[in-house]
């Protein structure tokens, strides 16, 4: 049988459907491994400089009932830091964020050990009050060296945050190199964050 134009034409629908089917199969596979998320939104800041934002106040002993004191931070402090910073945007009213805190605390502790690549964790509490933030941090772990309270969410808008929790990795000099809009997990840390930290140090 010779292949003529007509045969090729009648094969077209099959080829198209196969393409779609293979795509769907890849997506389903990605859904199970977490590599494909139809709700994901790329943050346009990734690979660019930190956006300008107004200085954020932290937790001072006067603003909260207990005496947990964490300084806030400003654009200048963030861009002139000499260590990679993992900026975690969270909220005391967000269950996945609170669930994430023990892991973040563990992560902060790991990076103080000798031999580990340098990393500090900074936090930004989205639409939150100092009192609520402090209560949650005292109960579930306190990983942050700096904590900014973004009470009305305007700073988060500057960062293009679409939901909490989100995390940004900022290298010295103020360049954002990595972003995730899902909770940080050991798996994500090992496969994506750690290689970046090793190459940075």
């Amino acid at each position: 049988m010779t292949l003529n134009r007509r045969h090729l034409l009648t094969l077209l629908p099959l080829i198209g459907a196969t393409g779609l089917g293979l795509g769907f199969a890849r997506m389903l596979q990605g859904l199970t491994t977490g590599r494909f998320d139809p709700h994901a939104i790329n943050n346009p800041l990734t690979h660019y400089a930190v956006p300008h934002f107004a200085p954020l106040s932290g937790l001072t002993s006067s603003s909260t009932p207990q005496d947990l004191s964490i300084p806030g931070f400003s654009y200048e402090e963030l861009t002139t830091a000499n260590q990679p910073i993992l900026l975690n945007i969270w909220a005391s009213w967000c269950l996945p964020c609170v669930e994430e805190l023990p892991f973040l605390t563990n992560l902060a502790h790991r990076h103080t050990l000798p031999g580990a690549p340098p990393l500090t964790l900074w936090g930004m509490a989205y639409k939150d009050t100092p009192a609520n933030a402090e209560r949650i941090l005292q109960r579930y772990g306190q990983p942050f060296q700096r904590l900014g309270i973004d009470d009305d969410g305007t700073t988060a808008i500057e960062w293009g945050v679409t939901g909490v929790p989100e995390s940004f990795l900022i290298l010295p000099g103020g360049r954002i190199v990595w972003h995730t809009s899902s909770s940080l997990t050991e798996d994500l840390y090992q496969t994506e964050l750690l290689p970046l930290l090793h190459s940075a140090s």
């Binding site: 977490g34 998320d37 709700h39 967000c94 269950l95 996945p96 669930e99 994430e100 939901g163 929790p165 899902s182 909770s183 997990t185």
Partner: peptide, 11 residues
């Protein structure tokens, strides 16, 4: 797990 939790939360 936390990832899927976020999904549920968003749903």
């Amino acid at each position: 797990m936390t990832h899927s939790f976020r999904l549920i939360a968003s749903f």
